[in-house]
């Protein structure tokens, strides 16, 4: 078993009274793309900066590939970081930017530039070597920033919200590029984002953070299908969180009482009794009768899908149905068939 790429042991970072990162422990495997996901201010950037060595932990221990780096400054760690603003040096050409890390680490100028050229070429940036960063588009700047980070062959590559400065159409392509590159080179990558879709699309492993702590950690599927609590369920895509009672659940299917009605749904094993349940909007099918009875309060046609808000005894349910399914008008009485239900812990 190789050492984890990064290990946090009860790492705390306090800024005065604020504990931006609060006794966090985790192991991140090598060669994986891990995202740190969470709402703004939850401590993602601070966690990333702790890995980079731009902040030193107030308490706890940080290891990179088995080596204790807790007290090492950024310059002494073998990490590379792509900053949210890219932080390209405005007074250096693209080539000089990429060769910078090599030359401050003692490489000779010619060797550094040759290696930088090769890296630029491999990222499709040949021909841009002599330009200044200001003369590049946002996407190109981003690739230069990646080239500058990769050329040092870091143990870990860090991205802080790398897509936030790109326009919407470019985002999908760039995030795919990052993922392809990570797979091709087998890099260990830690990637910060507040966008749940982005996290689901690229990650091997997602760490959901909340108020400086880890809310849950797992693969995208695990987090989506089996969120630990209402916060994660809601954060990992929309979820209707409702109160209900488990009448029987033996793995696979369950019988539940929701809003006075008795229904059957796919659900993992759970003890009998009252429970908090999460239902994804697309896991509800609207029918004329059956399931949890309700009334359509609002209906909207979005092209590929229809969205409904349905008033039930268990509360308002948000439902997304394919456009091909039968349509219901506002005010119509409907039944909500729960296809899949997630019991939440706590």
């Amino acid at each position: 078993m190789p050492d984890p790429a990064i290990r946090f042991e009860r790492v705390t970072k306090a800024f005065g009274p604020v504990r931006a990162v609060d006794a966090v422990s985790f192991d991140l495997p090598q060669g994986a793309l891990v995202t740190l996901l969470g709402p703004s201010g939850c401590g993602k950037t601070t966690t990333l900066r702790l890995i980079a060595g731009l902040e030193l932990p107030s308490e706890g221990r940080i290891e990179i590939e088995g080596r204790d780096v807790s007290r090492l400054a950024a310059a002494e760690r073998r990490i590379a970081m792509v900053f949210q603003s890219y932080a390209l040096f405005p007074h250096m050409t693209v080539l000089e930017n990429v060769a910078y890390g090599l030359s401050v680490n003692g490489a000779r100028r010619a060797a550094a530039e040759a290696e930088a050229r090769a890296m630029l070429a491999s990222l499709g940036l040949e021909g841009f070597e002599a330009r200044l960063p200001a003369e590049l588009s946002g996407g190109q700047q981003q690739r230069v920033a990646v080239a500058r980070a990769l050329v040092l062959r870091p143990q870990v590559l860090l991205f802080d919200e790398p897509l936030s400065n790109l326009d919407a159409r470019l985002r999908r392509r760039v995030r795919e590029d990052i993922r392809d590159l990570q797979r091709k080179l087998g890099l260990s990558v830690v990637y910060v984002t507040h966008d749940q879709q982005e996290a689901l699309a690229v990650s091997d492993l997602v760490v959901v953070m909340r108020d400086g702590r880890i809310a849950q950690m797992g693969t995208p599927t695990e987090l989506y299908e089996d969120p630990a609590d209402a916060f994660v369920a809601d954060f990992m895509g929309e979820a209707n969180v409702i109160a209900g009672e488990v009448l029987a659940a033996d793995g696979g299917r369950a019988r539940l009482r929701v809003g006075g009605a008795e229904v059957e749904a796919a659900m993992r094993a759970h003890p009998v009794g009252p429970a908090t349940l999460a239902v994804r909007p697309e896991a509800v099918t609207l029918v004329d009768a059956g399931g949890v009875p309700g009334r359509v309060a609002r209906a909207a046609f979005l092209g590929q899908t229809r969205e409904y808000e349905v008033e039930t005894d268990a509360g308002m349910l948000f439902v997304i149905a394919p456009a091909s399914a039968p349509a219901f008008a506002e005010g119509a009485a409907v039944g909500c068939r729960l296809e899949r239900v997630i019991p939440l812990r706590g």
Partner: peptide, 25 residues
């Protein structure tokens, strides 16, 4: 500040960062 930090993550110590990034700017 991210320029200083970028230099630091690439292995630039205080002297190198000052001389090659900050002072020219």
């Amino acid at each position: 500040r991210s320029l200083d930090e970028a230099s630091a993550t690439m292995g630039g110590g205080a002297v190198a960062t000052l001389r090659r990034v900050i002072l020219p700017l």
